[in-house]
Protein backbone atom coordinates (compact mmCIF):
# COMPACT_ATOMS: atom_id res chain seq x y z
CA UNK A 1 0.00 0.00 0.00
CA UNK A 2 1.31 3.46 -0.87
CA UNK A 3 0.02 6.87 0.18
CA UNK A 4 0.64 10.15 -1.63
CA UNK A 5 1.15 13.23 0.52
CA UNK A 6 1.26 16.70 -1.06
CA UNK A 7 3.27 19.46 0.62
CA UNK A 8 3.64 23.12 -0.33
CA UNK A 9 5.74 24.71 2.43
CA UNK A 10 6.74 24.17 6.03
CA UNK A 11 4.34 26.88 7.14
CA UNK A 12 1.26 25.41 5.48
CA UNK A 13 2.09 21.72 5.41
CA UNK A 14 3.47 20.93 8.86
CA UNK A 15 0.25 19.56 10.36
CA UNK A 16 -0.62 17.75 7.11
CA UNK A 17 2.74 16.00 7.14
CA UNK A 18 2.62 15.09 10.84
CA UNK A 19 -0.91 13.72 10.91
CA UNK A 20 -0.77 12.34 7.37
CA UNK A 21 2.35 10.32 8.09
CA UNK A 22 0.72 8.93 11.26
CA UNK A 23 -2.29 7.79 9.26
CA UNK A 24 0.00 6.23 6.64
CA UNK A 25 1.90 4.47 9.41
CA UNK A 26 -1.30 3.02 10.88
CA UNK A 27 -1.84 1.27 7.54
CA UNK A 28 1.81 0.24 7.33
CA UNK A 29 1.86 2.15 4.03
CA UNK A 30 4.81 3.57 2.12
CA UNK A 31 4.69 7.33 1.69
CA UNK A 32 5.42 9.44 -1.36
CA UNK A 33 5.90 13.06 -0.36
CA UNK A 34 5.29 15.25 -3.39
CA UNK A 35 5.94 18.95 -3.66
CA UNK A 36 3.87 20.65 -6.32
CA UNK A 37 5.08 24.15 -7.08
CA UNK A 38 4.12 26.73 -9.66
CA UNK A 39 5.29 25.98 -13.17
CA UNK A 40 7.17 28.74 -15.00
CA UNK A 41 5.33 30.01 -18.06
CA UNK A 42 6.33 27.85 -21.03
CA UNK A 43 7.47 30.98 -22.85
CA UNK A 44 10.22 31.41 -20.25
CA UNK A 45 10.78 27.81 -19.11
CA UNK A 46 14.13 27.42 -20.88
CA UNK A 47 15.51 30.63 -19.42
CA UNK A 48 14.27 29.78 -15.93
CA UNK A 49 15.94 26.38 -16.13
CA UNK A 50 19.19 28.04 -17.25
CA UNK A 51 19.06 30.28 -14.16
CA UNK A 52 18.29 27.26 -11.96
CA UNK A 53 21.30 25.38 -13.32
CA UNK A 54 23.52 28.33 -12.40
CA UNK A 55 22.00 28.55 -8.93
CA UNK A 56 22.57 24.84 -8.34
CA UNK A 57 26.31 25.37 -8.94
CA UNK A 58 26.20 27.72 -5.94
CA UNK A 59 24.26 25.10 -3.94
CA UNK A 60 21.08 27.14 -4.10
CA UNK A 61 18.34 24.71 -5.03
CA UNK A 62 14.78 24.76 -6.30
CA UNK A 63 12.48 25.97 -3.47
CA UNK A 64 10.70 22.62 -3.68
CA UNK A 65 13.90 20.78 -2.76
CA UNK A 66 14.16 22.82 0.42
CA UNK A 67 10.55 21.92 1.26
CA UNK A 68 11.31 18.24 0.64
CA UNK A 69 14.43 18.54 2.81
CA UNK A 70 12.30 19.90 5.64
CA UNK A 71 9.71 17.11 5.12
CA UNK A 72 12.44 14.45 5.16
CA UNK A 73 13.95 15.83 8.38
CA UNK A 74 10.51 16.14 9.97
CA UNK A 75 9.66 12.53 9.14
CA UNK A 76 12.89 11.50 10.88
CA UNK A 77 12.15 13.64 13.94
CA UNK A 78 8.57 12.37 14.21
CA UNK A 79 9.74 8.77 14.02
CA UNK A 80 8.11 7.85 10.70
CA UNK A 81 11.60 7.26 9.37
CA UNK A 82 14.39 5.62 11.26
CA UNK A 83 16.86 8.29 12.38
CA UNK A 84 20.20 6.93 11.26
CA UNK A 85 23.52 8.74 11.11
CA UNK A 86 23.47 8.68 7.35
CA UNK A 87 21.68 11.89 6.38
CA UNK A 88 20.36 10.40 3.14
CA UNK A 89 19.08 13.65 1.67
CA UNK A 90 21.17 14.93 -1.21
CA UNK A 91 19.80 17.44 -3.76
CA UNK A 92 22.31 16.16 -6.30
CA UNK A 93 20.48 12.83 -6.25
CA UNK A 94 17.32 14.32 -7.78
CA UNK A 95 16.68 12.29 -10.91
CA UNK A 96 14.61 13.64 -13.79
CA UNK A 97 11.92 11.14 -14.77
CA UNK A 98 9.54 12.08 -17.60
CA UNK A 99 7.51 14.92 -16.03
CA UNK A 100 8.79 14.80 -12.45
CA UNK A 101 11.96 14.79 -10.35
CA UNK A 102 12.47 12.03 -7.79
CA UNK A 103 15.21 11.74 -5.22
CA UNK A 104 17.20 8.53 -5.13
CA UNK A 105 17.39 7.74 -1.39
CA UNK A 106 19.85 5.32 0.13
CA UNK A 107 19.06 2.10 2.05
CA UNK A 108 15.81 1.69 3.95
CA UNK A 109 14.82 5.30 3.32
CA UNK A 110 14.23 4.44 -0.30
CA UNK A 111 11.83 1.64 0.70
CA UNK A 112 9.84 3.76 3.15
CA UNK A 113 9.42 6.99 1.26
CA UNK A 114 9.68 8.69 -2.07
CA UNK A 115 10.50 12.37 -2.41
CA UNK A 116 9.03 13.85 -5.57
CA UNK A 117 9.10 17.32 -7.09
CA UNK A 118 6.56 18.45 -9.65
CA UNK A 119 5.57 21.76 -11.20
CA UNK A 120 2.14 22.71 -12.42
CA UNK A 121 -1.50 22.79 -11.42
CA UNK A 122 -1.95 20.84 -8.17
CA UNK A 123 -4.83 18.63 -9.33
CA UNK A 124 -3.23 17.97 -12.70
CA UNK A 125 0.11 17.03 -11.14
CA UNK A 126 -1.46 14.77 -8.49
CA UNK A 127 -3.40 13.05 -11.26
CA UNK A 128 -0.21 12.54 -13.23
CA UNK A 129 1.51 11.26 -10.12
CA UNK A 130 -1.31 8.76 -9.58
CA UNK A 131 -0.72 7.42 -13.07
CA UNK A 132 2.96 6.82 -12.21
CA UNK A 133 2.30 4.65 -9.17
CA UNK A 134 -0.48 2.67 -7.45
CA UNK A 135 -1.57 5.02 -4.69
CA UNK A 136 -4.37 4.14 -2.26
CA UNK A 137 -4.85 7.46 -0.51
CA UNK A 138 -3.87 11.02 -1.47
CA UNK A 139 -3.31 13.32 1.49
CA UNK A 140 -3.49 17.07 1.02
CA UNK A 141 -3.75 20.16 3.21
CA UNK A 142 -7.02 22.07 3.49
CA UNK A 143 -7.38 24.75 0.87
CA UNK A 144 -9.80 27.60 0.60
CA UNK A 145 -9.99 27.09 -3.16
CA UNK A 146 -13.62 27.06 -4.21
CA UNK A 147 -13.46 24.12 -6.58
CA UNK A 148 -10.82 22.14 -4.73
CA UNK A 149 -13.34 19.79 -3.05
CA UNK A 150 -14.99 19.06 -6.36
CA UNK A 151 -11.75 18.58 -8.30
CA UNK A 152 -10.11 16.34 -5.71
CA UNK A 153 -13.01 13.94 -5.52
CA UNK A 154 -13.87 14.08 -9.19
CA UNK A 155 -10.46 13.71 -10.76
CA UNK A 156 -8.17 11.83 -8.37
CA UNK A 157 -8.41 8.07 -8.77
CA UNK A 158 -7.53 7.46 -5.10
CA UNK A 159 -9.23 7.91 -1.73
CA UNK A 160 -8.66 11.45 -0.48
CA UNK A 161 -7.71 12.66 2.98
CA UNK A 162 -7.97 16.43 3.32
CA UNK A 163 -6.26 17.86 6.41
CA UNK A 164 -8.56 20.75 7.15
CA UNK A 165 -8.01 22.74 10.32
CA UNK A 166 -5.78 20.12 11.96
CA UNK A 167 -4.75 20.60 15.57
CA UNK A 168 -1.83 18.32 16.37
CA UNK A 169 -2.42 18.48 20.13
CA UNK A 170 -6.02 17.44 19.80
CA UNK A 171 -7.19 13.87 20.43
CA UNK A 172 -9.67 13.34 17.61
CA UNK A 173 -12.79 11.17 17.46
CA UNK A 174 -13.69 9.52 14.19
CA UNK A 175 -17.07 10.33 12.70
CA UNK A 176 -17.83 7.35 10.50
CA UNK A 177 -20.61 8.28 8.09
CA UNK A 178 -22.42 5.15 7.03
CA UNK A 179 -25.08 4.68 4.32
CA UNK A 180 -26.04 2.22 1.62
CA UNK A 181 -23.42 3.38 -0.92
CA UNK A 182 -21.02 0.76 -2.24
CA UNK A 183 -17.93 2.51 -0.80
CA UNK A 184 -19.23 2.45 2.79
CA UNK A 185 -17.77 -1.00 3.48
CA UNK A 186 -14.25 0.09 2.63
CA UNK A 187 -14.72 3.37 4.53
CA UNK A 188 -15.63 1.36 7.64
CA UNK A 189 -12.49 -0.76 7.31
CA UNK A 190 -10.30 2.31 6.79
CA UNK A 191 -11.95 4.10 9.73
CA UNK A 192 -11.48 1.06 11.97
CA UNK A 193 -7.78 0.76 11.06
CA UNK A 194 -7.08 4.41 11.87
CA UNK A 195 -9.15 4.24 15.07
CA UNK A 196 -7.36 1.14 16.28
CA UNK A 197 -3.83 2.29 15.48
CA UNK A 198 -4.23 5.88 16.60
CA UNK A 199 -6.52 5.07 19.51
CA UNK A 200 -9.39 7.30 18.34
CA UNK A 201 -12.93 6.45 19.55
CA UNK A 202 -15.55 6.20 16.80
CA UNK A 203 -19.06 7.57 16.30
CA UNK A 204 -20.94 5.64 13.64
CA UNK A 205 -23.50 7.99 12.14
CA UNK A 206 -26.36 7.15 9.81
CA UNK A 207 -28.51 9.99 8.54
CA UNK A 208 -31.80 9.57 6.73
CA UNK A 209 -33.84 12.35 5.21
CA UNK A 210 -37.05 10.61 6.36
CA UNK A 211 -38.08 9.13 9.71
CA UNK A 212 -37.64 5.68 8.27
CA UNK A 213 -34.25 3.97 7.96
CA UNK A 214 -34.39 1.52 5.07
CA UNK A 215 -32.77 -1.91 5.25
CA UNK A 216 -29.74 -0.63 3.24
CA UNK A 217 -29.01 2.01 5.88
CA UNK A 218 -29.67 -0.03 8.99
CA UNK A 219 -27.83 -3.03 7.53
CA UNK A 220 -24.75 -0.90 6.79
CA UNK A 221 -24.83 0.60 10.28
CA UNK A 222 -25.08 -2.84 11.84
CA UNK A 223 -22.21 -4.18 9.72
CA UNK A 224 -20.06 -1.19 10.70
CA UNK A 225 -20.75 -1.75 14.37
CA UNK A 226 -19.89 -5.45 14.08
CA UNK A 227 -16.64 -4.71 12.32
CA UNK A 228 -15.56 -2.19 14.98
CA UNK A 229 -16.58 -4.67 17.67
CA UNK A 230 -14.39 -7.34 16.07
CA UNK A 231 -11.50 -4.89 15.98
CA UNK A 232 -12.13 -3.97 19.61
CA UNK A 233 -12.57 -0.31 18.79
CA UNK A 234 -14.45 1.88 21.26
CA UNK A 235 -17.54 3.16 19.43
CA UNK A 236 -21.07 4.54 19.68
CA UNK A 237 -23.91 4.58 17.18
CA UNK A 238 -26.17 7.44 16.10
CA UNK A 239 -29.25 7.46 13.87
CA UNK A 240 -30.31 10.95 12.87
CA UNK A 241 -33.13 12.28 10.72
CA UNK A 242 -32.34 15.36 8.66
CA UNK A 243 -30.08 16.68 5.95
CA UNK A 244 -27.04 14.36 5.80
CA UNK A 245 -24.40 16.96 4.92
CA UNK A 246 -25.49 19.45 7.59
CA UNK A 247 -25.80 16.69 10.19
CA UNK A 248 -22.25 15.48 9.46
CA UNK A 249 -20.84 19.00 9.66
CA UNK A 250 -22.67 19.90 12.88
CA UNK A 251 -21.73 16.70 14.66
CA UNK A 252 -18.15 16.77 13.46
CA UNK A 253 -17.43 20.35 14.54
CA UNK A 254 -13.67 20.81 14.75
CA UNK A 255 -12.80 17.78 16.85
CA UNK A 256 -13.61 14.85 14.57
CA UNK A 257 -11.93 13.14 11.68
CA UNK A 258 -14.77 12.49 9.24
CA UNK A 259 -14.53 9.18 7.36
CA UNK A 260 -17.04 8.47 4.60
CA UNK A 261 -17.39 6.52 1.37
CA UNK A 262 -17.21 8.23 -2.01
CA UNK A 263 -20.34 8.82 -4.05
CA UNK A 264 -21.48 6.23 -6.55
CA UNK A 265 -23.02 8.86 -8.84
CA UNK A 266 -21.79 9.12 -12.44
CA UNK A 267 -19.03 11.57 -13.34
CA UNK A 268 -21.49 13.74 -15.26
CA UNK A 269 -23.99 13.86 -12.37
CA UNK A 270 -21.22 14.77 -9.95
CA UNK A 271 -19.98 17.48 -12.31
CA UNK A 272 -23.36 19.20 -12.52
CA UNK A 273 -25.02 18.28 -9.21
CA UNK A 274 -22.13 17.60 -6.82
CA UNK A 275 -22.33 14.81 -4.27
CA UNK A 276 -22.66 14.28 -0.52
CA UNK A 277 -18.91 13.80 0.04
CA UNK A 278 -18.13 16.85 -2.12
CA UNK A 279 -20.50 19.06 -0.15
CA UNK A 280 -19.29 17.69 3.17
CA UNK A 281 -15.67 18.23 2.16
CA UNK A 282 -16.45 21.75 1.05
CA UNK A 283 -18.18 22.72 4.30
CA UNK A 284 -16.33 20.66 6.90
CA UNK A 285 -14.10 22.40 9.40
CA UNK A 286 -12.08 19.33 10.35
CA UNK A 287 -10.00 16.66 8.61
CA UNK A 288 -11.97 14.40 6.29
CA UNK A 289 -11.22 11.11 4.54
CA UNK A 290 -13.33 10.16 1.54
CA UNK A 291 -12.77 6.49 0.71
CA UNK A 292 -13.13 5.14 -2.80
CA UNK A 293 -14.81 1.87 -3.60
CA UNK A 294 -11.69 0.14 -4.89
Amino acid sequence: MKFLLAVSSQEFSESTLRMGSKVAKSFGAQLAVVYVGPKPKELYAGRVSLARDTLAKWEIYHPGIEVLRWAFDDLKTSGFLENSDDNGFNPLNMVEEKDRYRMALPGSYGQDIDLILREGDIIDELRRECSEDEYTVSIIGGSKGRNMAHDLLQYLPTSVLVMKNVNLDHHYRILLCVDDSSATDRAVRFGATIAKQMNFPVTIMTVSKTEEFGPGYSGAAEAASQHLESQQVDHEQKFITGDPVNSFIETAGEDHLIVMGSSSKSALAKFFLGSKPMKTLEKANCPILVVRDK
Binding site: G37, K41, Y44, R47, A51, L55, P63, E66
Partner: peptide, 8 residues
Protein backbone atom coordinates in the same frame (compact mmCIF):
# COMPACT_ATOMS: atom_id res chain seq x y z
CA UNK B 1 9.67 34.91 -13.88
CA UNK B 2 13.24 33.92 -12.99
CA UNK B 3 13.27 35.77 -9.66
CA UNK B 4 9.79 34.43 -8.88
CA UNK B 5 11.05 30.88 -9.42
CA UNK B 6 13.26 31.34 -6.35
CA UNK B 7 10.08 31.13 -4.27
CA UNK B 8 11.22 34.20 -2.31
Amino acid sequence: MIIHSSGL
